[in-house]
Design a protein around this nucleic acid. Sequence first.
DNA 1: GGCAAACGTGGTCATTTGACCATAATTCCC
DNA 2: GGGAATTATGGTCAAATGACCACGTTTGCC
Lengths: 192, 192
Amino acid sequence: MNTGFETYLRNNSHLTDDEIAQIAGASTTRSLSRNESLLQEGQVCRHKTYVISGLLRIYGLVADGSEHILQFAPEAHWTLDAESYDQQTPSRFNIAAIERSEVIVWSKPVFDRLLADIPALRALSQQLIARSNHGSRQRLFTALSATPEEKYEEFVRTHADLQNRLPLHMIAAYLGISLKTLTRIRHAQIRR
Amino acid sequence: MNTGFETYLRNNSHLTDDEIAQIAGASTTRSLSRNESLLQEGQVCRHKTYVISGLLRIYGLVADGSEHILQFAPEAHWTLDAESYDQQTPSRFNIAAIERSEVIVWSKPVFDRLLADIPALRALSQQLIARSNHGSRQRLFTALSATPEEKYEEFVRTHADLQNRLPLHMIAAYLGISLKTLTRIRHAQIRR
DNA sequence: GGCAAACGTGGTCATTTGACCATAATTCCC
DNA sequence: GGGAATTATGGTCAAATGACCACGTTTGCC
C-alpha cells in the first residue's frame, strides 16, 4: 500500500525504504468525517498524527464561545498539539476536521520507539519543529503588526490552495478579525 | 570564573561539570550598552547567545517605522533569531539591548561542534526549541483572541518581574496595542 | 430530491482604537 | 549637577471595527 505518506517521506527525508516501511507499518489509519473532532480541549494528545488527505484545524475557544484558529493542517501536514503531546498534559486547544479526512497516527510509545531506532526520523522531527517555530513566529508578527487587510492579503498569498476550501468565517477566525471585517475587505478589493 | 551561566546549566540540564566547563570555555563575553544593537534586520545571525544579565528585545519594524516586539530576553534566556541562525539566512528581525547587558556568544561552527560532541547539550537545545514553540503559540492565541485589556492582564501575570524594567511604549509594542490604549487600560484599573 | 443547516452579504449603530498634539515629569548621560 | 532626551498622561477627533439583525443563497446530508 502506498498512502502518499511513503512518497512524502521519500521526498522529504533521508529515510531508507526499509525505515519508511517500518514507520508506515507501525501506523494506524483513521478516517474523520466532516466536523469530527480529533482532540478536545482538556484531553491529552496521545498520538502523533500525519494528514493523508482532507483538512484539519487546530483552534481554541474563548469565553463567548467563538473560536480562534491557530493553524490549518491540509494533506501532507503533521498535526498535533505539540505541547500536549510532548508533555502528555491536557491540551488547551482542539483539533477537528473541516473536510472528510484521512490521517495516520502512532501512539506516543510507538513513535518514541521509532525515534529511538531511526536517526533520520529524529532529523526530520527536528526539522518539522524548527519549521513550526518559524511559522508561529512569523504569524505572531503579522498578528501584532498588520492591519486586517494586510493579514488577509498575506493569507491569500501564503494559502492560495486553501482559500476555496474554507468558509469565510474560518478564515476570519484564523486572522483574528470578524467575519464582517473580512467581508468588507473582500468587497473593497473587488471594487478595485 | 562563574558567570551564573554555569549555575544555570547545572540546574537546567544533565551536563557534567566537565562538559559545562567545555561549553563555557568555548564562549566569548560581550557587553552591550543601553540601546545597543546585537542584530539588525537583513543581517545573518551568526552566533548562539545566552543572556547573563540585563534585558534584550527581539523586534520587527513595519513600514511606518514603528516597532513590534516578539520577545523579551532577560537574564538566563537564550536569545537568537532561530530561523536566521539555523539557516544562516538574513534575519527579518532586530535584537537590541534595553538595559546595559552582558551576553555570552558562540559562533555557529563552535556551537555546532559542541552539539556534536555533547548529547546532553543537544537534549537541552531541543527542550529550549520546544519551549519556544509553545511560547510562540500561546502568544499567538492571545494575540488573536484577547482584548487589549486581557492582553495586558496576561502580561502582568506572566512578566511581573519585567513590568518595572520596561517603558510602557515597549509593553504596548509587545502587546500589539497603542500606547494610548495601554494608558487607558491602566487608568481604568487604578480607578477600580 | 428535498429539507434543514450553514453560509455570505448587507444595513445600522455604538464603541473602541489609534492618530495627532501638547505638556509635565522623569530619566539618562556627559 | 544640569541640560536634553525620553517617558507618561491627557484631550480631541476621525476612522475602523464588532455586535446585532435580517435575508437570500448555497451546501450538506438523509
